[in-house]
């Protein structure tokens, strides 16, 4: 199983990124040493439960962290060049034209008192220096691109359905021809049929425009439909990274395994789902060692004290002591 993107030059490199949130004088580590590479045209999913750090990772990359967040370690590089992700003003030229974000709640992200065509035209005027007429023409083009008839551009957000609004969000994100789209749960608020339409649209746009996609989601089954690679996050760290086919056919991390087993899947006919015991950890008292150890059926003594590193394993990466000891044994005997 080879990943066709592996030979391409990295578009985005996230290197040991850590973000802390300040809270009443304390600081909480939301993500802890997150590293990955995104290549042109590649679709990568960041999957995790609430509090896993998937949204913080994405917002850090886009330079959209909230004011009480601080990048405490690590760098993000775009085409080899370091991004000023903790400097709002310096980030401005990079947003929209390199990385755009499609947010979850399209109703909250759109301005209710402006016609949608005007909202899409705005970044074109500000960023690409277009005249109003040019920008309007571009906005209409973009509407057609996302499957909305150009004459609907005169509508206000409240006149559109949830699916249409999400299409408008995508059109806006595409306005300044970015090479990376970050989708933060872009289909979570939508019905399944609309969700399927939006996922199909994202897939089409991706191949048409050679877009790289970072999809933030809690839903592994959505990932199966539209991504090349998936990174599983737990309590602020990536615990497994692999191609979609690998992860679903042969998950390595116990958390990934349990997560897949807890999704009802009529395709395999098994009605039994295995609950994962316990609750996701909160950031205030993250368990020592591997954060998953209190819930892990295969936890060993070492898991309670040492954080497993995210090491290469097969085609992907996994952060689990089980596999580290396994791999060490292999090297010893070889």
């Amino acid at each position: 199983m080879t990943n066709s993107f592996q030979n391409k030059a990295p578009l985005l490199e996230v290197d040991r990124l850590s973000v802390d949130y300040g809270l009443k004088g304390n600081s909480l580590r939301a993500i802890d040493g997150v590293s990955f590479v995104l290549r042109a045209g590649e679709a990568v999913a960041l999957v995790g439960e609430s509090g896993s750090g998937k949204t913080t990772t994405a917002m850090a990359i886009a330079g959209l962290l909230s004011p009480n967040a601080r990048v405490s370690e690590g760098v993000v590089r775009y085409r080899g060049e370091r991004l000023p992700i903790d400097d709002d003003a310096a980030m401005r030229p990079h947003r929209w034209s390199e990385t755009s974000v499609v947010f979850q709640g399209a109703m909250n992200a759109l301005n209710p008192v402006h016609r949608i065509v005007k909202q899409i035209a705005e970044p074109c005027m500000l960023k690409l220096g277009m005249s109003r007429a040019e920008a309007t023409a571009r906005a209409k083009e973009l509407l057609e691109l996302v499957g909305i008839p150009a004459d609907r551009g005169a509508a206000y957000p409240h006149e559109l359905s949830g699916g249409m609004r999400q299409r408008v969000m995508i059109a806006m994100a595409l306005a300044c021809r970015p090479s990376i789209i970050i989708g933060d749960e872009p289909t979570t608020a939508l019905d399944v049929i609309t969700q399927a339409q939006i996922l199909k649209l994202l897939g089409e746009l991706r191949s048409q425009l050679n877009l790289a996609l970072i999809l933030i989601t809690h839903d592994l089954s959505v990932v199966a439909e539209c991504c090349d690679r998936v990174m599983i996050m737990y309590s602020g760290r990536i615990v497994e990274d692999g191609t979609v086919a690998e992860i679903f056919a042969d998950p390595k991390h116990p958390y990934t395994k349990l997560l897949i087993d807890s999704i009802p899947n009529p395709a395999n006919g098994k009605k039994m789902i295995r609950p994962i015991p316990g609750d996701p950890p909160n950031l205030v008292n993250r368990p020592s060692g591997c954060a998953f150890h209190p819930r892990c059926p295969s936890a060993m003594a070492v898991c309670t004290t040492e954080v497993p590193s995210l090491d290469k394993f097969g085609q992907g990466r996994v952060a689990c002591h089980l596999h580290q000891s396994l791999q060490n044994k292999v090297t010893v005997h070889a």
Partner: peptide, 8 residues
């Protein structure tokens, strides 16, 4: 058909 599914 619209329901995303793992491996099905």
């Amino acid at each position: 058909n619209a329901t995303p599914q793992i491996g099905g």
